[in-house]
Design a protein around this nucleic acid. Structure first.
Lengths: 340, 340
DNA sequence: ACCTCCAGTGTAAGCGCTTACATTTGAATC
DNA sequence: GATTCAAATGTAAGCGCTTACACTGGAGGT
């Protein structure tokens, strides 16, 4: 029958085991420094009282929290889920805990979340992308909190990043599309403001056009938040314009799936009437009919490597590497080869 | 030029503003108790120093953290995403922060996460389902941490739950299936052990069969983790048995989408050759072709109500309501009406 | 027998904050 | 001008933990 009114503290355990608080603390944090017999006694008391260390107190007294914070733009679609899961798994095997918050793609909320996680003692932070107010990085630097930007590869930024080159990747896909004989390309992009991934992908698209003697300026572009519904709407907008495109390239798979639905709603068949491409290669891309041509991104590997790199930074084993992952064009049914 | 080597504390702010630490604290926590002029001076100092309260210290000194913890089985698929997003939004408008952890459907990890969140001072906890070791509830009770179980409605459990009746919901869907003339029903269920939602859904299925003079014992069932790939495999297993079912009912939409893919791979068309049903009505169900007949669950509403109920428990020390939400059968193309 | 040394343990000083209680201030009242 | 009293602010005691440092006793060296 334990006391229901109060939570046991280190003191209680110490008293119950007949040792000092220091010994109890050592049993918990560096067991090898306590002789077996004592340790057993202490552990028994811990067990008997159902003691759990108070995290706040621990953070205050020590410095480390073995907590990593991650802030992702959204939990609602699967873009970040897989990578984050891998990130979490790797952290877990290394004894760290992951705290996740989502910013709903809003810089203000993201800053709030950053402060919140830092205040909670996060040893390090994983952020998505790199495009944010410099004051954020200053703030983090002043507190010497290591930050790693993922989902992007920006060696020139001077900050550690783990990811792939969004611009090059999209350019490669666009090159493939052009090689297939497409000249009239329309684009459904994510909101580029405050989202360097979306911006880079759009830039890559323009690169490809320019490199092939096409005028990027004439390319129709709709920017819209990453949501299926928006993809459908944007698609219809683009297809209703004069001079219909032969292919609609989307900033990510979610938009592409939306475009696909837009096509279905308009009674257009893909890829016979119009081709559609995506980006990310989330599960969705292989589930829909037709399956979507997209850029495959090694999400799990990115998550794992991000975890390793960030822990290295936290534990001072490195200043933070910049790691590039390779993406690959994933050809599937939604893209038609017009040359055949 | 600020000192990069040390993080400003309440003391620093107090000194900079020429007041005591108590006044600074009051400015931050109950501004109305400080006269305007002083408050301005303090806030200016806070701004100038870039001060952020140390969360650990705050937790220790006060009791409240305005943090709610949630542990979900997985982040990898969308089942919980929407509800959780709504949960988070509602918390945010009420001044609470959400900390999310995932348990990978493993009770051991879930317990670990619970302890971790409690140690971090979570004022309340949201858990998915209700089926877990009693010691967990004891632990939480001993610390008077309110817990709310969501995604289930269990008035008889004596614990607050916010959700729908999984058993009844599935039974209703099965009734519809039977009314459409299906007699040979096969099932792809989630792992029922340690997952009361999956178990209840399966039970609801059996209820419906029994109520219609069908023998639940002869119903083929495959249990498999909630993943698309598994759905495909399970589907093929079921369809290769003798006495093919006319309908494969799945424990959730993810499995149903997998089954759909399984059918495609086998060259079967849905619903002509075989019908498929899901559960949850996540976005996925409407994206695939054919769209999946499923049970619609008001995820966002559930999330919102869960937030409100949990905060009530935290603030009012009330015992917590049990709230039932209504699910509805959502007929779509993947289910064939054999009577016509 | 004496000294060293060290593994094992205890003592106690904070970590940065909130808040009960004490003190000061100044406007209002007599 | 003296008195009263509420509002504004200050003082200081913890919250539960880690860890530098102090202490103890026994093994090993001389």
């Amino acid at each position: 029958m334990s006391d229901l009114r109060t939570v046991p503290t280190l003191d209680d355990v110490a008293r119950a085991a007949g040792v000092s608080t220091a010994t109890v603390s050592r049993c918990l944090n560096s067991p090898e420094r306590v002789v077996e017999q004592t340790r057993k006694r202490v552990m028994a008391a811990v067990e008997a009282l159902g003691y759990t260390p108070n995290f706040g107190a621990r953070v205050m007294a020590a410095k480390r929290t073995f907590t990593i914070g991650a802030i992702i733009p959204t939990m609602e679609n699967a873009i970040f889920a897989r990578g984050l899961q891998a990130f979490q798994e790797e952290l877990h095997t290394r004894g760290y805990t992951l705290l996740v918050a989502s910013s709903a793609y809003q810089p203000k909320i993201e800053e709030e979340q950053i402060r919140s996680l830092v205040a909670r003692g996060a040893d390090g932070l994983l952020l998505i992308g790199h495009d944010r107010d410099p004051s954020v990085y200053q703030y983090l630097k002043a507190r010497s909190i290591p930050v790693l930007s993922a989902w992007v590869y920006l060696p020139e930024s001077g900050q550690p990043t783990v990811g792939f080159d969004n611009r090059q990747s999209m350019r490669a896909l666009a090159q493939q599309v052009i090689d297939f004989g497409h000249q009239k390309i329309a684009v459904i992009s994510g909101i580029t403001k405050g989202n360097d991934r979306a911006a880079a992908r759009l830039a890559g698209l323009r690169d490809a056009l320019a490199a092939n003697g096409l005028d990027p300026k004439t390319m129709p572009v709709v920017e819209t938040p990453y949501e299926i519904e928006n993809g459908a709407v944007a698609f219809q907008t683009l297809m209703c314009a004069e001079n219909r495109p032969t292919v609609v390239m989307c900033g990510n798979d979610v938009l592409a799936v939306g475009a696909l639905r837009g096509a279905r709603d308009m009674g257009l068949s893909v890829p016979e009437d119009v081709s559609i491409t995506g980006f990310d290669d989330i599960e969705l891309a292989r589930i829909v009919t037709p399956q979507i041509t997209t850029v495959h991104v090694p999400h799990r590997e990115m998550g794992r490597k991000a975890a390793i790199a960030l822990i290295d930074m936290v534990e001072k084993r490195g200043t933070g590497d910049t790691i590039e992952l390779k993406s690959t064009v994933q050809l599937r049914d939604s893209l038609r080869d017009l040359t055949r």
